[in-house]
Every structure is written in structure tokens, then in C-alpha cells.
């Protein structure tokens, strides 16, 4: 039961995110055949119908392509993967700024803080 889900959001949406992450990070490289719905559902310990719904979503966005009886593969379209990576990065950025806002940091100060931190992390 290696996949972890948080409470407040639909499970299929979280599956979509986690699969997107695996694709843009290269765990599933472009053109690679994906495990079957049944296999992935068992691995994530989720309902197969929920996994199916997540795949349908990924197909709609073009990240995953169904090849008839051959199963599903990751798209070879590098641009599309790049777009997805950027969308995920935007989410991270948004989450950072809104989190800092709650802590009382205005945009500018949050930016400065991030820059300082980047230096620290590098060391």
C-alpha cells in the first residue's frame, strides 16, 4: 500500500496527479507501455473503476494513448509532457505563495525568502 491519499479530495483526481508525476519525472518514459488498470489498482490498493476513471482523464489530456488491445502507452509527444510538467510546477508555485500568505508574507517578501532559501539549500 505504497500510494498515499489525502482525505479531502476525490481519489481519482489524486491518482491522476500521481500518474502525471510519474510520467513527467520519467518513471514511465515516453512511449512506454503502462501496467494494466487491474495491476495498477492492485498496486495502489484502490478500486479498479477509480483507476479506470483516472486513466480516462489522462487519455483526455493526451498524456496517455490507448493502442487498441495493446494496452496503454505514454505519449511520445515531448511538448505535451513538457506542458504537463509546467502545469504541475505552477501548482507548486501557487501552493508556495498561498502558504506564505497565510504566514503573513507578502509576494515580495515571499520571493526574497525563497531566494535566500535557495542559497541555503545549495550549500
Amino acid at each position: 500500500m505504497a500510494w498515499v491519499f489525502d482525505d479531502g479530495r476525490p481519489i481519482y483526481a489524486q491518482l491522476v496527479e500521481q500518474l502525471q508525476l510519474k510520467i513527467v519525472s520519467g518513471v514511465y518514459p515516453p512511449g512506454e507501455k503502462l501496467p494494466s488498470v487491474r495491476e495498477l489498482a492492485a498496486e495502489a490498493a484502490v478500486n479498479p473503476n477509480t483507476m479506470q476513471k483516472a486513466f480516462a482523464e489522462l487519455e483526455k489530456s493526451g498524456l496517455v494513448i490507448t493502442q487498441g488491445t495493446n494496452g496503454r502507452v505514454v505519449t511520445q509527444d515531448g511538448e505535451r509532457i513538457q506542458d504537463n510538467r509546467q502545469a504541475l510546477a505552477r501548482q507548486q508555485g501557487k501552493a508556495y505563495f498561498s502558504g506564505m500568505e497565510r504566514l503573513g508574507y507578502a509576494r515580495g517578501r515571499a520571493m526574497e525568502f525563497l531566494q535566500d532559501m535557495a542559497g541555503e539549500v545549495r550549500e
Partner: peptide, 30 residues
């Protein structure tokens, strides 16, 4: 996370019959 749908019962009555993701979407909680 294994369930598609849930049936809620109370005092012998059917309170709710819906999908798990529906509850999460609508109420923002598990």
C-alpha cells in the same frame, strides 16, 4: 479507497446512496 459507492443507513432508513468520490468532491472530506 477500495469502495466505489457507499450506502448510509440509520435507524433502519436509507440516508444516502452515492459514490465515494462524490462525497469527497461535494463535501471536501473523506
Amino acid at each position: 479507497q477500495v469502495l466505489d459507492e457507499v450506502i448510509f443507513m440509520r435507524y433502519g432508513h436509507l440516508v444516502l446512496y452515492t459514490s465515494v468520490d462524490n462525497v469527497r468532491e461535494k463535501h471536501g472530506k473523506s
